[in-house]
Design a protein around this nucleic acid. Structure first.
Lengths: 221, 221
DNA sequence: TCAACCCTTACGGGAAACCGTAAGATGCTA
DNA sequence: TAGCATCTTACGGTTTCCCGTAAGGGTTGA
């Protein structure tokens, strides 16, 4: 089993339980911190001292309490930690249920496990730690049934820029201007219109409001 | 200190920590349940056996896991329990941060304490239990900010119907038809337009896409 | 080099949404 | 009941959006 584990979780109540779960798994050396910056410091120091951590368990959202922090959320923390110690295992523990966000964690940030804070989260966390220790990835069963991909659409960054601008209240006819500002390749109004039309058609939508709602739901916005 | 305490909290991780917090306060007889209906049963039986509970600690939101329940959230639970045993003390433990909701809990449902799930929630919970035992109400300090109401907008059910229909892809000009179907009072197209215009103005938005995004963000959709 | 192709952009007609104005309906008060 | 206020609806002109067509611009391959 893992020897050294670092827990980054701002909620005291959650933090306590994670500690207890790890104890029940026979993990003695568990350090728990309430801020992302502290987590980075401990990872750094352990690495420097030749006694690195085996596993990082982190939340996604850390609440701002007016203590200025360099790193303010779990995604940034995972990135920073992997830069310091690329071989560290990571499990994310969060209430996030949107499949887009969770899938992105595995795909883009190469996390090893995801446990959604829900009914049997302690049990699933225990299973996650065991799975990850066996070099397997783990996703708690109640999280993210991304199977509902019916007639899904692979959103490009171009798509996301457009939808993001719409959600910010930019008028369609002004979108080309904003795209040029960011040096995004197709910037013509017709291209924007064509792309929106395609997205709506694939997803069987009729209005842009649906696109915005859909992207919010799956966590792309 | 309280003798008998009942904890209703579906998240295992949170439940474990609440138990531990109570133990640290010297409370031995703490029963913990994961469903509202179970809570009601235990309150009833204890009352019947002449050994009632002194305190109920409950979450607000209980996730549906396909186990059919009579009572599905903390507000309903508090109401039901007070009907069985009016003198029981109640502390709500929840992530809810909207001051309106919290204030309503104290005013309408006469709860004795509120602890927001946040950084020092375990510590605040401990303080809450002690305060409530001393017949004082308690509200955790971080749940206070009712100041962020800047240019907020109180959404009516009418507003929500309109935005919901938009998010479902209904064309604006067809919304009157849907409103009539549901016997919603103003159903004219002009009324819909006026209302949308007002909402956009109050929130300083220019497009309906922003309204949809906003409602998704604050959990109204 | 030319030609075929794909991607991007420009244009124009028609539909929908936006917005101001005013007429009608409802409700309250004197 | 008359008068006033408020809410609802109807109607138009303007803007924006939608969508099909076609022209420009770059790449590839014979």
């Amino acid at each position: 089993m893992f020897k050294k584990v670092l827990i980054a979780e701002d909620h005291e109540i959650a933090n306590i339980s994670v500690q207890k779960t790890l104890q029940d798994l026979g993990i003695r050396d568990a350090k728990y911190v309430y801020y992302c910056d502290h987590a980075v410091t401990w990872i750094k120091n352990a690495q420097r001292d030749g006694d690195p951590y085996d596993l990082l368990i982190t939340d996604l959202i850390f609440e701002d309490d007016h203590t200025p922090q360099q790193i303010s959320n779990g995604v940034q923390l995972v990135q920073a930690v992997k830069q310091i110690q690329p071989d560290i295992k990571t499990i994310v523990l969060s209430a996030e249920s949107r499949s887009g966000v969770v899938d992105d964690l595995f795909k883009t940030h190469a996390i090893d496990g995801y446990v959604r804070k829900a009914r049997r989260d302690a049990q699933y966390l225990s299973e996650a730690v065991k799975s990850v220790y066996a070099n397997k990835t783990y996703k708690s069963p109640d999280s993210a049934d991304s199977s509902r991909v019916k007639n899904s659409h692979e959103f490009t960054t171009f798509d996301m820029h457009i939808i993001s601008l719409l959600a910010q209240g930019v008028q369609q006819k002004n979108i080309p201007y904003y795209l040029q500002q960011k040096n995004i390749k197709p910037s013509g109004l017709s291209s924007v219109e064509k792309r929106l039309n395609l997205m709506r058609e694939v997803l069987d939508f009729s209005k842009n409001e649906q696109l915005v709602a859909y992207c919010k739901d799956i966590g792309l916005l």
